[in-house]
Design a protein around this nucleic acid. Structure first.
Lengths: 139, 139
DNA sequence: ACCAACTAGTTGCATCATGCAAATAGAGAA
DNA sequence: TTCTCTATTTGCATGATGCAACTAGTTGGT
């Protein structure tokens, strides 16, 4: 009854998820929390888009993204550009302040990861990143 | 300004956390949800213990574990054994029903992982499991 | 031109997992 | 005994999410 590879992965993923979950409340870092960071990052890298498209890309409910977008707008990290054709729609465009917040947050995260993973080799880091990315895209 | 290894890992972890978080509500699987599973698994593998010790092992707040324990007890998956010496304390002991639920849940998770990771080689699975475990313990 | 059906986005309500702080109650020491 | 310490529970708050109902604008058929 030894644990097979899948069991190990399932277990470790559950543990990981919990750790991250508990950090989510606890985190007292910058202006940006995890979900805002992800949304801002997405807008930054893919370009402006409306909440529906973003929600699809994230596999999240539109309402969730809508709220996150509202929150980012309130902080001045994105602006809504009304769609000239469709009066209901708009795109979220990252502002200079948003770019700046993103850079700072990313820097913080990177530093934290560096500390955490100080003992890992380049190969291990590479592999871990690859496999994580692949796992996420498999989902 | 290309993304370095740490940035990639940080980003992918954030994405992963979110995916798992969204599954947490959505999941309509067995009797056990993620946090209950983890607690039960821990009790199963480490043996009976009180909430304080379990909370320490999980790096979770005692209150959180207390509630999870109460919930597991309500479902009949653990029983409280009062500490014969200390009247405040008790240990949580897994019941046969708890063992059974654990087995079933684990089986479900394993199957899901198998489906998800069908295209991965044994080496990749092995490496991913290792690195995840190592990361969790580094935390 | 009009109405019905559709669609982009928002909002109210519920749930889950968590933390912190206060409460409870027993233990141990002076 | 009384004061302090400790194991656990409970109340309150927060963040992230989903679903369902709503608003308002679009589009297609007649």
């Amino acid at each position: 009854m030894s644990e097979n590879q899948y069991e190990i992965i399932a277990l470790e993923l559950a543990i990981l998820a919990r750790r991250v979950a508990s950090m989510t409340t606890y985190r007292k870092t910058s202006d940006l929390d995890r979900s805002h960071y992800l949304l801002l990052h997405q807008i930054h890298t893919r370009g402006s888009a409306g909440v529906k498209i973003l929600a699809e890309e994230f596999h999240l409910n539109v309402s969730t993204v809508s709220r996150q977008a509202a929150s980012l707008e309130e902080k001045g990290f994105v602006t809504r550009i009304p769609d000239p054709i469709d009066g209901r729609a708009f795109t979220l465009q990252i502002t200079p302040a948003g770019e700046q917040a993103l850079t700072i947050y990313r820097q913080e995260r990177t530093t934290r990861m560096q500390e955490l993973l100080a003992s890992w080799t380049r190969e291990e880091l590479d592999t871990f990143g690859d496999l994580l990315a692949r796992f996420n895209r498999t989902f």
